[in-house]
């Protein structure tokens, strides 16, 4: 058999696999997102043995494997641990406006969240910048990560 050496002459079968998943939050995620949605508050869990506060919260310690039962309210402010300016969307098409994405370490915690930064020009962002969460209005919150609209530089 001859090999097809011209891409457009190959005859692939094209198929999509559109699947829908249900990703349950679990005990820790339910509480985290419920507090966020209903009260606009952030919660974490603490491991006293390791002296670590996890945000997002979980029921187990990654470091010592202890079950975690101590819930602590944490602020919705934090520090930019690292950040990037993304120039393309998921289809690899250029974004009309590049987006700033950061890992925000929540104040007083060991953990944090990857989220968008807003109300700031990309060139003004720096590691160590203080930021605060901007939540969507209560009526629009659905109990998920996007209940946080973005983080912005802390107003002084």
């Amino acid at each position: 058999m001859e090999k097809v050496n011209i891409v457009t002459q190959a005859q692939p079968w094209v198929d999509r696999f559109p699947l829908t998943g249900r990703y349950t939050y679990g005990v820790a995620g339910e509480r985290f997102f419920r507090e966020l949605k209903e009260n606009g508050r952030f919660f974490g869990t603490r491991c006293t043995a390791c002296d670590v506060v996890y945000v997002p919260p979980r029921l187990y310690c990654l470091r010592c494997f202890a079950p975690l039962e101590e819930w602590v309210e944490v602020p919705s402010t934090g520090t930019v641990h690292t950040f990037t300016v993304v120039h393309q969307d998921l289809d690899e098409a250029p974004l009309p406006t590049p987006e700033v994405i950061a890992f925000v370490q929540i104040d007083g915690c060991d953990g944090g969240l990857v989220h968008r930064l807003g109300e700031v020009a990309p060139e003004d962002v720096y590691i160590g910048m203080s930021v605060e969460a901007v939540l969507k209005p209560t009526a629009e919150r659905q109990g998920g990560l996007t209940d946080i609209a973005y983080f912005r530089p802390t107003l002084r």
Partner: peptide
Amino acid sequence: PVYTRPLGVHPLAL
């Protein structure tokens, strides 16, 4: 799917 994917950001951001 719960803590990162909802942002809809290209993974190269990581």
